[in-house]
């Protein structure tokens, strides 16, 4: 596959899948709402895929950053009469700024401690939203947020607007991972000290990406509140963050499309599996199996090799590449 084809393959898959499902929605209209939910999760999960899958930096605060964006826009539009077209700016900037400020001290922590700190941050945000009194609507939340600009409340138009943003993020993600900065991010994941020795400004690069990820989550929160018209502390919370991590790990943390696949799997499973209380059993079992069989998720080099074995495809020389080369490829990917 040529370099250009590789760059545009992921966005093309997104477009084709979106068009197919939206057409199927003509027969089954609930699919439009399903596509909105998948798009929303995908928008929060994609940047986590970037910072965790490519950068090795785990975050359990994505759902909470989305909540900050949603609340920021809800407060500005319902309390101060700002139109949603303008409230999108603080809805993106506030979580990004918050993430950038806290990123510098916490991103030096080991993976598990970082997970705990981001989880704790999510808890603090949730408590603040619950106890914010009239300002945040307390446990009840805020209602009456105006609809999205241009597209209003029409589910098809909302889904198209949301997926256009998802597509833009996918295009930027695809280009980023193949840029010098993207390779630097991978270098940080493989060996942080070596990356620093090679001239990568690790704290700044990670903090910037962390902030961008939070900003995109804030944008998802903005979509959420203006399409549903309502936000409460339980709408986007720590549990959402855990689900987002599940989607990224299941779909494939190193693949551009992995988080979207994970979001689709999670949403369809929630919609079609009977008995909501047993969903955790299903998701837990599936995740253990996927991690055992294909540690990098469904879209991963291991899974691709299994697929190639099934369909009998080999590389151009007619045989599999040596193990060392395959491992190096995996490390880079």
């Amino acid at each position: 596959m040529s370099k250009d084809a590789k760059l545009w393959a992921a966005p093309a898959v997104v477009v084709v899948a979106f068009v197919v499902v939206m057409l199927l929605g003509l027969v089954r209209p609930s699919l439009h709402t399903t596509m909105f939910t998948i798009g929303l999760y995908a928008l929060i999960a994609l940047p986590l895929g970037l910072i965790y899958g490519q950068g090795g930096t785990i975050s359990l605060a994505q759902g909470s950053f989305a909540a900050v964006g949603a609340y920021t826009s809800a407060i500005l539009t319902t309390r101060y009469g700002l139109p949603p077209a303008l409230s999108v700016i603080p809805a993106v900037l506030l979580p990004a700024l918050l993430a950038f400020v806290i990123a510098r001290p916490i991103l030096r922590l080991p993976e598990l401690s970082l997970a705990l700190v981001t989880l704790s941050l999510g808890t603090v945000i949730a408590v603040g939203l619950q106890r914010g009194g009239d300002f945040t609507g307390s446990y009840v939340g805020l209602s009456g947020a105006p609809p999205l600009p241009l597209v209003g409340k029409d589910p098809v138009a909302v889904a198209i607007a949301l997926w256009t943003v998802v597509l833009l993020v996918v295009v930027m993600y695809s280009h980023f991972v193949r840029s010098a900065r993207g390779r630097a991010l991978n270098a940080i994941r493989v060996d942080r000290l070596l990356a620093e020795a090679m001239g990568v400004n690790v704290p700044f690069d990670l903090a910037t990406l962390f902030a961008v990820a939070a900003g995109i989550a804030g944008l998802a929160g903005w979509f959420y509140v203006h399409s549903i018209g309502y936000i409460a502390p339980d709408s986007l919370n720590v549990e959402t963050s855990a689900h987002i991590l599940f989607m990224v790990v299941l779909g494939g943390r190193r693949a551009v499309l992995g988080p979207i696949l994970g979001a689709a799997f999670f949403t369809f499973a929630n919609d079609f599996l009977p008995g909501a209380e047993t969903h955790g059993l299903f998701f837990g079992t599936i995740l253990v199996l996927i991690l055992l069989l294909s540690p990098d998720g469904i879209l991963s080099p291991q899974a691709m090799r299994v697929m190639q074995k099934i369909f009998g495809r080999r590389d151009r020389a007619g045989k599999a590449p040596p193990a060392g080369i395959a491992e190096a490829k995996e490390a880079v990917q």
Binding site: F246, E277, H279, L281, F283, G284, T285, L287, V288, L291
Partner: peptide, 11 residues
Amino acid sequence: ATFALMLAIES
């Protein structure tokens, strides 16, 4: 994987 097990236990 233990996170997945926790989800399953809770459910």
